[in-house]
Design a binder for these strands. Structure first.
Lengths: 340, 340
DNA sequence: AGGTAGCCGGAATGCGCTTTCCGGTCCCAC
DNA sequence: GTGGGACCGGAAAGCGCATTCCGGCTACCT
């Protein structure tokens, strides 16, 4: 028993294919009420399920939305994905997902695969890399838009894509100002390799703001952009803290460019019996959901992850005339980890 | 400039449509090397991108995999999704994602939408509900398999689907045994409404094992199957703990049927100045990634979430002959939260 | 040398649906 | 009573591709 086709429904209802199509698939032109009824009944009778593939081919619109994230199991991305998914559902779109394990090549492959599936729009979420590494994805997106698709990126500009920008610079600057307000002056920067643009944006703005406030960045530690990177930085941070204590100086304040690094760092410091915030202060960035129940509670910059996902989808499905970029707010949240 | 079609490539290369198709789309029949070269060059020249929709229609296979989860921002599901995504990529499949906000109706809608998109297989991850609530999804899956698709569920049996079963009963029993071994005898069960089958499986097996060991379940608290549910249970747990202390009894041990509830509970207990594990012990279930850095570290049952996602995809893409269900291991992990 | 098996390209069909166009009705206005 | 809109149902032409035949060759076997 093969799946019934629209033609079968039409036959069963004693109408033409065109009429059946108009009844069942949201055409602007609706046949007379009696026929509508007959077609509906026939469809129900046969258990007809429309073939979206065939529809897409005929309409040359798929109603599909491609979402590329760098690691779907990372709370940063799964929050964005949740927002995007919800918005897509509201707009009647389906989401094709790709998780790239933070590999720019996989990012390009994902975009290419989405293009092959003729998704109506592609959302790429996550930090940009070096211009060389970004180039292939950018080219792919270029081709995609040339073919009539729309590209949106959550992060930094990439090729022709519209941009939803996390408030990296503003957030980091405000964080620096708030910490200054609290009396912190001696900072350590826990950042990521230069190619990670998000880390650079946050670190750069933080450094500038610290300098402007008359503070000092004692050292920049460069580590992986992950929980384990933060953990790995723990030993060096512990040393710095001990030197400060020995010299009778104020405990240093570490700005980890992302919450997951801050969490990893604190875990290592705990292993090493370095107290937070007594021996060293720690601040992060993102305010990921799991941070809420962390001990000690962690100072961070809260950014609306789900909303960013929603905004990206909104930009992706918006009518031609719609605006280009979206700005989102942020909020510095001071918690125990930087208490004096 | 419209997108080039295969026909354009064929013309440009001076060959027939059939030949171009055979060259570019992994046909078993490969034309002569000279033609292959010409077609390749023409495709590159024109920037040809195959139309997966048209392919799907012609082949009547889409290469799509539908993944239904109950909340993509929940680490339980995002871990499963990560495994599923990785496996899908290895198998050359694309993933269509739906997140249902734990609504059985949305679950059914998602399955129906996937069926309309003619995905080759559907994976539904998450606890089952009451038989009445499950029925619509089950019916939908039934129809889907009748139409030639394959259904896999991660959780409990549902309609005709193959099952990847989390070791709920075995894990909970082993946890009870391990806690008994540690000397715990007085337990409190923090469970979820009866309709949440996963919670019932864990709670049931735990209760049985406690009874078998000569322990006692003092009380069953029923709350939402979420972090906030755990938080809400905090007040009652605190009371129980205080009564125990007043009566000079051993501090009770709470088994929260999922880690996120355990985390919420501990958060509330901290607010109330009830010490874990001194005043009350807490154990969870799942060993979600974020648990690693929780303070106090939490006793739990570790289950291989990513692997479950992979297994589900493997079952979904397996050849006809392949086996039905998959079993996964588990491991009780004793940590500070239940230390005596 | 004759015959046949095996290849190779290409024409043509069809996957399931949307949509344009067309001819036919009905009704209203003049 | 007639002409003209407005509407309505259906035939047919694609949407872009895979794949089945089919006719023509070559190479090999006898």
């Amino acid at each position: 028993m093969a799946r019934p086709r629209l033609q079968d429904v039409a036959n069963h209802a004693g109408v033409s294919l065109a009429t059946a199509s108009r009844v069942l698939n949201g055409s602007s032109r609706q046949p007379g009420p009696e026929l509508v009824e007959r077609v509906r009944a026939a469809a129900a009778d046969l258990g007809y399920v429309v073939n979206a593939q065939a529809q897409a081919l005929a309409r040359s619109r798929t109603g599909l939305l491609g979402l590329v994230v760098q690691d779907i199991s990372d709370p940063y991305f799964s929050s964005i994905a949740a927002g995007a998914q919800a918005a897509a559902r509201e707009h009647g779109r389906m989401v094709l997902l790709a998780s790239t394990e933070r590999d720019p090549d996989a990012e390009r492959d994902a975009v290419a695969a989405f293009a092959a599936h003729r998704v109506d729009a592609i959302v790429v979420a996550g930090t940009r890399w070096s211009p060389e590494e970004d180039a292939p994805v950018a080219t792919e997106l270029e081709a995609f838009e040339a073919g009539g698709g729309r590209a949106v990126v959550v992060g930094q500009p990439l090729g022709p894509a519209r941009v939803v920008r996390p408030p990296n610079a503003a957030g980091a600057a405000d964080l620096a100002a708030a910490l200054h307000e609290q009396g912190h002056r001696r900072f350590v920067l826990l950042s990521a390799p230069e190619r990670v643009v998000t880390a650079q944006e946050r670190a750069g703005a933080f450094t500038d703001a610290v300098a402007a406030g008359g503070g000092e960045v004692l050292e920049v530690i460069e580590q992986q952009f992950s929980r384990d990177g933060g953990y790995a930085a723990g030993d060096r941070v512990a040393e710095i803290a001990r030197e400060a204590a020995a010299a009778g100086l104020d405990a240093p304040c570490v700005f980890a460019v992302t919450d997951v690094m801050a969490i990893g760092l604190i875990a290592r410091l705990r292993d090493l019996d370095v107290a937070v915030p007594d021996d060293v202060r720690v601040a992060g960035f993102d305010d990921i959901p799991t941070l809420r129940d962390h001990v000690p509670s962690v100072t961070t910059v809260s950014i609306p992850l789900e909303e960013m996902g929603r905004l990206a989808v909104a930009a992706a499905v918006a009518e031609e005339g719609a605006e280009a970029g979206a700005v989102v707010g942020h909020e510095v949240v001071l918690r125990e980890s930087t208490a004096r």
